[in-house]
């Protein structure tokens, strides 16, 4: 009845299959971590290899031994059959992306992050032609109080990477999630609710992890023209690490 029955017999030879390919893994790795290490792409947004998996966006959903699960949090078992690049799963991922697009206000043509945005690039990867659902058009005022950075909450997908970076790396807790359900939103750590009144700086890890265009460095937005940005050159699946050049 032990719960640790999946300890591998031979640590050198533990593998699972991902869409028919053999992927080695080591103790503690999750499916997406092992896949990434082997150079395989599984679409994802809230996962960032530098951080502990979070499991909220569900874009990295795969089928593992017949059961759907988030590949960023699920640990593989020896000889597990993992399917990722199937029509059914990609259809579901696309629908999840469409949910994220209608939940916020994502106007790519006027977004500084366009071309460097993981949400957009993942939607390209999955051939998302329209947001499909009806838009929620929420009212999310932006915060331009800080001298160097602005926050455009319209684009937030609630991945919490900034919150995780700020607490786990910077030791600051500048960002947190507040509210519940569809009213969940990002807040900053100040009584005024303004970024300028926090101890946030451009040297923070949190300043550089937003996969979309919420945390934006001022005055550099269009230094690289649209059409010449990361994911204009290569699709996200062919970009080894989702570290975006426009962000620094």
């Amino acid at each position: 009845m032990s719960q640790n029955s999946n300890t591998p017999h031979n640590k050198n030879q533990t593998t699972f299959t991902l869409d028919g390919k053999t992927i080695p893994f080591s103790e503690g790795q999750t499916i997406i971590q092992a896949a990434m290490a082997a150079g395989e792409y599984i679409p994802h947004l809230c996962f960032n290899p530098e951080f502990k998996p979070h499991g909220s966006c569900k874009i990295c959903t795969v089928t593992a031994n017949g059961r759907q699960t988030a590949s960023c949090t699920q640990q593989p078992q020896v000889d597990m059959m993992v399917e990722s690049d199937t029509k059914q799963i990609n259809d579901e991922r696309r629908a999840l992306l469409q949910m994220l697009f209608v939940e916020g206000n994502h106007f790519c043509p006027s977004c500084e992050k366009s071309g460097d945005c993981q949400l957009q690039a993942t939607a390209y990867e999955l051939d998302m032609m329209s947001p499909h659902f009806d838009h929620f058009s929420p009212n999310r005022p932006l915060d331009a109080s800080h001298g160097e950075y602005l926050l455009d909450f319209n684009r937030c997908i609630l991945c919490s990477l900034c919150a995780r970076a700020s607490s786990d790396v910077d030791g600051k807790n500048v960002f947190s999630l507040a509210g519940r359900g569809i009213k969940t939103h990002l807040i900053v750590n100040s009584k005024s609710g303004k970024l300028a009144d926090t101890d946030f700086t451009g040297d923070d890890k949190a300043a550089h992890v937003c996969p979309v265009g919420v945390i934006i460095k001022k005055r550099v937005g269009f230094a690289v023209p649209i059409g010449k940005r990361s994911f204009d050159e290569h699709p996200i699946s062919a970009t080894p690490h989702p570290i975006v050049k426009g962000a620094i």
């Binding site: 499991g55 949910m99 519940r180």
Partner: peptide
């Protein structure tokens, strides 16, 4: 009552 953590439930229950 959706907690808002995951995309499908947060947005899907509203849709």
């Amino acid at each position: 009552e959706s907690c808002g953590f995951c995309t499908p439930c947060r947005v899907g229950t509203s849709l």
